[in-house]
Simulated scan of single mutants.
Amino acid sequence: MLPIPANKRGAAGKRLQALFEDLPEHERRTLLAFAEFLASRAPKTAPVAQTPVPQPRPEKESVVKAVRRLSATYPMLDKAKMLNQTSALMAQHVMHGRAAVEVIDELEVLFESHYNQYRKDRDEDSTE
């Protein structure tokens, strides 16, 4: 089986996984060689930190700046997965007048909980 974590596959990855599993061993090796060739041609990106890069919380910080700071602190997280929760908290501040400090406190908890889930998922993937 290809070592693709379930949470990283998407529809195309799942299809590729199914095709891979249906191939005989010699064809699997060919597919892997071709995938490695394609990957070698792809532009290289800077590695993403796997551990948080702490940034101190300023005394006075806007909610938007807090989201930027937390995104930089946790670069390994998929921000798209957090969009609904993050925007809901931001709306509570902007549209409903909730204090920025309270919203930022919750944002920090949100990012930390997503990081803990990220670590848990990575640990489970490494034991498979």
Rank of each mutant, 00 (worst) to 15 (best):
E61F: 03
V64Y: 09
F37M: 15
P58D: 11
P43S: 12
P52E: 03
P54Y: 09
R68K: 15
R57L: 10
P58M: 05
V67F: 01
L38P: 01
S40C: 05
P47N: 08
Q50L: 12
E59H: 10
E36W: 12
F37Y: 11
S71E: 14
K44Q: 15
P58F: 08
R69W: 06
E61Q: 11
A42R: 13
T51P: 00
V53K: 12
P58A: 12
T51Q: 14
V67L: 01
R57W: 01
A46V: 03
S40Q: 12
K65N: 14
K60P: 00
S62G: 09
P56L: 12
T45C: 01
A39G: 07
P58C: 05
S40R: 11
P43W: 06
K65D: 15
S62P: 00
L70T: 01
Q55R: 14
K44L: 14
A39W: 06
R57A: 05
L38T: 11
P58H: 10
A39M: 13
V63I: 06
P52Q: 03
K65R: 14
P47F: 01
T45Q: 07
V63K: 06
V53Y: 05
T45D: 05
F37G: 04
E36V: 05
R69H: 09
P47W: 00
K65A: 14
R57H: 06
K44D: 04
A42I: 00
A49C: 13
A46M: 01
S62E: 04
S40V: 08
L38Q: 12
P54F: 09
P47K: 15
A49I: 11
P47A: 13
P43N: 05
P43C: 01
V64F: 06
L38N: 06
V48P: 06
V63F: 04
R68M: 05
L70S: 09
P54C: 07
E36H: 12
E36A: 08
S40A: 15
V63Q: 02
A49E: 11
E36N: 13
A42C: 09
A42V: 02
L38A: 12
V63P: 02
A66P: 09
E59Q: 14
P47Y: 00
Q50A: 12
P43Y: 04
P56A: 13
A49D: 10
L70Y: 07
R57S: 05
K44G: 04
K65S: 14
K65E: 12
R68V: 02
S40K: 10
R57C: 10
A39K: 13
Q50F: 02
S71I: 04
E59K: 15
R41F: 13
A66G: 06
S71A: 15
V67M: 06
R41V: 06
V48N: 08
R57F: 01
L70Q: 03
A39E: 11
V48D: 00
P54V: 11
T51W: 04
R69A: 03
L70N: 02
S62W: 01
A39N: 10
Q55K: 15
S40D: 15
L38H: 09
Q55E: 15
S71N: 14
S62T: 15
S71W: 03
E61V: 07
V67W: 04
T51D: 08
A66W: 04
K65P: 00
V53Q: 15
P43V: 07
T45Y: 00
V67K: 00
V64M: 04
